[in-house]
Simulated assay, not measured.
Amino acid sequence: MKENWLGAMQADQIGDETLDVARAAGLLQQQIRSAGLKLRESTDFTLFEDTIRATEDKYLMEDFSTRFFDLHGTSAFWIGAWDSAGEPVSVQAAKLEDLRDRSLGQYWQQQHRRIFVDPGAHAELGEDHAHDAFFMRGKIVYHGNLWLRRDARGKGLAEALTQLGFLISLLKWSPDYLYGLMAAQNAKKGFGIRVGYRRFVPRGTHWITPPGHIRPDDWLVYSNHNDLVTLARTIIAEDLE
């Protein structure tokens, strides 16, 4: 009888969690749309690449390129925002890795070597990656390729858009962790905490000789499952104030 009661209570908690996350995601969408932007979520990464080419930066991360990965709707999505003229204002992407058999640090050793080192002999990957990465296992979401047009910056949209990506990831996959790699300067200025990350490690991936387009000073920034749920409930609480 006690086990049945505990099971029912846990199910209620999960249900409340899902409702809170969905409500917070709705509040963020209202904020973004009130700025005159149209949102679209997609799992078509060919369209993602086309959208990236229409931005001023035109920067496509290898992690979200169909040249390197098979990106499917079950494990990857992207969100775009467009202005009233149909011009892209923001893009971001996320993908899920099931790392129950290895740590995130071990995953980096395999994938970064495959993507960056083997095709280009000038790059050399080290082994002294972020300490926390070697303890992170389970369902892990990588969030990246975040871009916001210059004229839209400084208006709170970066925070709202990024948090929306976090919460959509939480609703889709209920991950154990969600992480990104952030330039040290941005992390030190507090950008990571403003967009929703709650844990910071002053070393991301360790490069002895980085590829030409990769920053060697990135930080691992991440949140665990409970951090993301707390983020959603904080958004709701701030809306009620």
Rank of each mutant, 00 (worst) to 15 (best):
T51E: 15
R53T: 08
D63S: 15
F69H: 07
E41D: 11
D50V: 02
H72A: 13
D57C: 02
E41H: 02
R40C: 03
T43F: 08
S65M: 12
T55A: 07
T51H: 06
D44H: 10
F68W: 15
T51R: 00
D63Y: 14
L47C: 11
T55F: 10
T51G: 09
S42G: 09
L39S: 00
R53Y: 08
A54W: 02
S65C: 06
I52R: 09
F45A: 06
L71M: 12
E49A: 14
D57N: 10
K58M: 06
R67Y: 03
E56H: 00
S42T: 04
F45W: 11
T46F: 06
A54V: 08
L60H: 02
E62S: 14
I52W: 04
S65E: 13
D70F: 05
E62V: 04
T55D: 04
H72S: 14
T55E: 11
F68N: 13
K58Y: 00
H72Q: 14
T55Q: 00
H72D: 12
A54D: 11
D44A: 05
I52N: 11
E41R: 15
D50P: 01
F69Q: 13
Y59W: 07
D44S: 05
T66G: 05
D70G: 01
E49I: 05
M61S: 15
T55G: 00
R40W: 14
Y59G: 01
M61F: 08
T46I: 01
D57V: 10
R53L: 10
A54T: 09
M61T: 13
R53C: 04
S42L: 03
Y59F: 06
F48D: 08
D50T: 07
M61A: 13
